[in-house]
């Protein structure tokens, strides 16, 4: 089972490799990927450097191209595919069928991973992408229970990658317009969810108000742990219930470390750590813990459960870097749904 880690810059890439990542995914410094934040991501020259580092250390490098090509600007996305082919990167992570089509016709040797933004959650959808574009792997949206993941893994025509740790997107990815409804930008179009230039924190008396394009997402006390403000993690009211409630989800992160045995037995090819926007320190911390956990499962699958109990520091290390310092199994656990 591959440990796939995020990198928003060269420092994070090195941190991931040093801490034991098998593979790293990264994006270009533009709107061709859904973490299009100022100061983040790689120029073409930096990707070349990253690719040399990966080859030296015998690790894999994937280019994230998970937004949808804008009419009139398609060549920006196509050039990113050209770059990946030229540098002989290990895969391109892509959701747009026009790009999958371009890549599979132009570079049949370039591995294609279906991005989570394509929202492929079932064998018929996966088969479509396999037949049409010969994808090698698909990243599953965070909407399936462990049982559903296992059932799908048995019949999937392609390798499967799942989210293991990080910010929890609670919607079928690629089909969520909550961000663009409030800000005009979505991951699909603008390259980010809840863009930072629309976020405003405001102190009013003892309250801290969190606004997204002036819409009040949450009101909290000064000492409460706050997550990054997104529409789905706000506190709202209804006509019959005026006490504010997390109607969709509270600020929390995904942590599936306890699921390693089940995911491994199901034949999941890769475990993905979310967080290209996070610091090199985050990447180091999370990669180290997951490397140890995966290795200890490999060495002794039968005792993993006990190992997990004897390693409370794994949980505390992961909680420390989690949103709201709280973690959940999310949709993997039926009860959550």
């Amino acid at each position: 089972m591959e440990l796939l880690c995020p990198a928003g810059n060269l420092a994070s890439l090195k941190a991931a490799f040093n801490a034991g990542a098998d593979a790293v995914y990264l994006g270009l410094k533009d709107d061709t990927n859904a973490r299009s934040f100022a100061g983040l991501n790689f120029s073409a020259a930096q990707i070349k450097q990253a690719s040399q580092l990966a080859k030296q250390q015998n690790r894999k490098l994937f280019l994230t191209l998970n937004t949808f090509a804008k009419p009139g600007h398609e060549n920006r996305w196509q050039q990113a595919i050209d770059l990946a082919a030229e540098l002989n990167l290990d895969a391109v992570i892509c959701a747009d069928i026009s790009l999958l089509d371009y890549a599979s016709r132009t570079y049949p040797g370039l591995a294609l991973h279906l991005s989570v933004q394509a929202s492929a959650t079932n064998v018929a959808a996966l088969s479509f992408y396999k037949q049409q574009f010969n994808i090698e792997r698909a990243v599953l949206p965070r909407v399936l229970s462990v049982k559903q993941v296992k059932d799908l893994a048995k019949i999937s025509p392609v390798d499967l990658e799942v989210f293991a740790f990080g910010s929890l997107c609670i919607m079928a990815e690629g089909r969520c317009q909550l961000s663009s409804y409030v800000t005009g930008q979505s991951p699909n179009t603008g390259g980010s969810c809840s863009p930072a230039n629309h976020v405003r924190w405001q102190d009013v008396g003892t309250d801290k108000l969190t606004r997204l394009n002036e819409v009040l997402i949450d009101k909290s006390s000064q000492d409460e742990q706050l997550g990054y403000p997104v529409v789905c993690k706000g506190r709202y009211q209804t006509n019959d219930e005026m006490t504010p409630e997390y109607m969709l989800e509270s600020p929390t992160s995904l942590n599936t470390i306890s699921l390693i045995p089940e995911l491994a037995q199901a034949g999941i090819r890769s475990l993905k750590i979310e967080g290209r926007q996070r610091s090199p320190a985050y990447v180091t911390q999370v990669t180290q813990v997951w490397r140890q956990a995966i290795d200890s499962y490999r060495q002794s699958p039968e005792t993993f459960e006990n190992t997990l109990k004897r390693q409370p520091q794994w949980h505390s290390a992961l909680n420390k870097v989690s949103e709201g310092q709280v973690t959940t199994l999310g949709a993997y656990e039926r009860q959550w749904q």
Partner: peptide, 21 residues
């Protein structure tokens, strides 16, 4: 009304403290 998102979670059931199943 514009459909904006779909989730594994049922928000109506959650509001009523019921599991989806």
């Amino acid at each position: 009304y514009i459909p904006l998102a779909h989730s594994a979670r049922c928000f109506t059931a959650k509001h009523h403290q019921k599991p989806k199943l």
